[in-house]
Write a protein that binds this DNA or RNA. Structure first.
Lengths: 115, 115
DNA sequence: TCTCAGTACTCAGCGTTACTATGTACTGGT
DNA sequence: ACCAGTACATAGTAACGCTGAGTACTGAGA
């Protein structure tokens, strides 16, 4: 993964995963697959599992163990009330940052004519 | 500063500062002030200076020491060719991330009706 | 004169985060 | 018996922003 992307994901990846979970509960392996579908093709499995442990310890999700037909039992995560609060704050913080950076971009003429 | 914002700034703050420098060369104290003007009111001085040391060591900026009327000499940073490349990559990476997250936001109905 | 606010930069130590690399465990197909 | 796919876990590392402190210089006010 690119150095820049790795750093940018800090703080956003958690929000991204919470946003995925607000749609429907999911388990780690599944979440990793969803991330890849959504363009985050290079996010390591280990990263996702570590993040899930973290949001569970923070109390943002409820966990249920569900047997799988083809492998070890799945840990299904669902967003709880506290998780929804955190997600709402994430959107607010993200919105603020994206706005400020957007302003900067219109000022910066470096990229004009590119792409 | 909020926990979420602190984490989100990782990877973006460098790009933000590079974008400020593309407009005109500036020194640390000045950059801190510009950041505050642009809404980043809570960014610590120490953070900015540390970042400047970093981008200098990466070779993204040229530095010139200029005497000040009211205090220690200023270290004026100007974006060089390599810095412009890095900035262009920053905008690309940011654009990608912002697009993906934008897609997620339209899917996520949590925030509808708020604000 | 002494003090204090403003200017300007520096640095050590810390917590959080994502990545790498590896390992475990279970199923089904060849 | 072997391997690919499924599913989760974790120790160690690097990068980055924050906290809190300190240094140094100028000029205004008590």
């Amino acid at each position: 993964m690119g150095r820049q992307m790795t750093e940018m994901l800090k703080g956003t990846l958690e929000g991204i995963v919470l946003a995925l979970l607000v749609g429907a509960p999911a388990y780690g392996y599944e979440i990793t697959a969803q991330l890849r579908e959504r363009g985050f093709t290079e996010i390591a499995e280990g990263t996702v599992y570590a993040l899930l442990v973290r949001i569970e310890q923070k109390g943002l999700v409820d966990v249920e163990k569900v047997p799988s037909e083809k492998g070890p039992p799945r840990k299904v995560y669902s967003l709880n009330a506290q998780g929804r609060v955190e997600l709402a704050e994430f959107w607010k913080t993200w919105g603020f940052l994206a706005d400020r950076i957007g302003e900067l971009h219109t000022t910066d003429t470096t990229t004009e004519g590119e792409n």
